[in-house]
Design a protein around this nucleic acid. Structure first.
Lengths: 161, 161
DNA sequence: GTGAGAAGCTTTATGCTTGAAGGATCGGCG
DNA sequence: CGCCGATCCTTCAAGCATAAAGCTTCTCAC
């Protein structure tokens, strides 16, 4: 029988591996992006809050103590200059309080105000519910498996960075 | 025997579910973020290119045809105004070419220039290798499983958006 | 003590992203 | 034809993010 259609382009094993990894990455990115966009949208809509500000407040709430800007920078995995701006805006809104440290005058600490704590509690509660809802189509087992695989993936990436 | 330590805080089934989903989300976000940051870093270092510009060029290369700004906006899942700026900058660099459509003068199409094609091929090749490398710590089976779970997750999220 | 280098933060320039408002063009209905 | 809503793009203001340069303060070896 004649060859009617063009033959598939020759593909090495390496080609196939790369294509699969690329597909995996695109899927990972799209999923994370969709969730992030939706959380961001709801946070803005219901609380007039942005995700980066919320994340910063969450770190303060979790630490349950004052943190330095450097601590925040490391925990949020963003640059120092970025934290400076976020802290400025949150302080302007009266949600956090900046205080220069006596022991090290280069450094400043930041803590949630009462107003910040109250708002954060409300937001965190809603936020938990949203996430639980968004992933609600997956069984507990599927979620656990995904979580475990992501952990492996992150380890792989970090080792190669 | 006396109760020496404080009892664990009472947690409902719902609480546990929410906590697990939150943990999953944090892991998903951290993984995607780490990969994205690393790709961005390498693209800047080796090619002086940003990820958003690269992504736009990738859509043009994949389509192998001119696309309207609206097409790009939908495919990249970003707003129209965003695409306008990206296209401006890429056109300034001579990597893409803008052309007003005769049939519909509201709309413009965009295609890769020869210079853009050449650069994109080089970048895409490196990009494939980087991703394959970054996920190289996972077996093909682990990658396939992660990919499948991510697909489920994305479906779940999109249904609830 | 003091001087060099490190640490902590801010500033600046640049770019990405959004949402909202606005301008041009198109299509269709009366 | 003429208008009205829809479509497509751009503009604008605000915010997030980075990298690089710069400022102040601290530490430590001498």
């Amino acid at each position: 029988m004649d060859q009617i259609v063009a033959p598939p382009p020759p593909r090495s094993e390496k080609d196939r591996e790369e294509t699969e990894a690329l597909r995996l990455w695109l899927r990972l990115f799209a999923t994370a992006n969709t969730v992030e966009g939706e959380l961001s949208r709801r946070l803005r809509q219901d609380f007039g809050m942005t995700l980066p500000r919320f994340d910063l407040m969450a770190q303060l709430a979790k630490a349950d103590d004052a943190l330095t800007l450097g601590d925040l920078s490391r925990r949020l995995m963003v640059t120092n200059g970025n934290v400076t701006g976020l802290v400025d805006r949150l302080a302007d809104d009266g949600l956090i309080e900046r205080r220069v440290r006596q022991t090290d005058r280069r450094s400043a600490t930041v803590r949630l105000t009462d107003k910040g704590k109250t708002l954060f509690d409300a937001m965190a509660n809603a936020h938990r519910g949203w996430i639980s809802d968004l992933f609600g189509g997956l069984s507990a087992e599927a979620q656990a498996e995904l979580s475990a695989r992501l952990r492996e993936a992150r380890t792989s990436v970090m080792e190669r960075t």
